[in-house]
């Protein structure tokens, strides 16, 4: 029970997210209308994905500095859950875009497909997809761990141009593009309403903790399975 305080915290924060996210007041915005509440769900998926990828790359570096097989298992499972949350972010974004950009803003399919954040996120997820393909193509576990740890660092570095830099340089339908003269829409204090921030930040922490929790479950299961391998 001592160690599980953050699991309870995750539950409390997500309960607060659902209750506060639906019931509390939000700014009245054109086009977005009530769908601004998706900020507590869709955007949080991407934030949790980034945090899980950061944890994953830390374990990959740890693996390379000591060649402890455990760290490889950690890195793999955090990356797996990060990619899963990324896919959820993509799916929720598709629904949201359909009702705001396509239906209300009359954007053509071409302009939605040209959206740099969509392309960047797709590239980033595909690079992580290649990480899992690379892992599964090795039969030798030491070789697999070593090469995929190096590749994981490359995949993480590719996040910088694909989802953080390029979408902010070119025009985008997302907030935070050059046209809307703001940096990071989610973290810029001038851009995001204080009413939204009150739920948005706890929601990020809650979703991230849930992601970490699920990945530690997978890690623990794998460690039990590989116990003979690790000790022998």
């Amino acid at each position: 029970m001592k160690k599980s305080w953050w699991k309870i915290l995750s539950f409390v924060l997500l309960t607060y997210t659902v209750v506060g996210g639906f019931l509390m007041d939000v700014p009245r915005l054109a086009i977005l209308n009530e769908s601004i509440r998706n900020l507590y769900f869709h955007v949080c998926m991407w934030f949790s994905m980034m945090i899980l990828f950061i944890i994953s790359v830390v374990y990959s570096i740890k693996y390379l500095s000591g060649f402890d097989y455990k760290n490889d298992i950690y890195a793999k499972n955090f990356a797996k859950l990060g990619a899963f949350l990324g896919i959820l972010g993509y799916a929720t974004g598709a629904i949201w875009a359909n009702y705001t950009w396509v239906a209300d803003q009359n954007q053509s399919l071409a302009s939605v497909l040209k959206e740099p954040k969509l392309l960047g996120a797709a590239i980033a997820l595909l690079i992580y997809g290649a990480y899992f393909v690379l892992r599964s193509s090795f039969t030798d576990i030491d070789k697999r761990a070593r090469i995929s740890a190096v590749y994981n660092i490359f995949a993480f570095v590719m996040l910088f141009p694909s989802i953080w830099i390029i979408p902010r340089l070119v025009g985008s339908l997302h907030p935070g593009a050059p046209g809307s003269d703001s940096g990071n829409p989610a973290l810029n204090f001038k851009d995001i309403d204080s009413r939204l921030r009150m739920i948005f930040y706890p929601a990020i922490i809650g979703w991230t903790l849930l992601g970490i929790w699920i990945s530690t479950l997978k890690i623990r299961l794998e460690l039990i399975k590989d116990k003979n391998l690790l000790n022998g």
């Binding site: 599980s4 997500l14 659902v18 209750v19 929790w213 299961l221 039990i224």
Partner: peptide
């Protein structure tokens, strides 16, 4: 809100049960 909370609680109960099962295995 009630529907979403029910799903969330169900999800957490499931994950907690898994956690306990794995703890037992450990």
């Amino acid at each position: 809100v009630a529907v979403c909370l029910t799903i969330l609680i169900g999800l957490f109960v499931y994950v907690f049960a898994l956690d306990r099962k794995i703890k037992k295995m450990e």
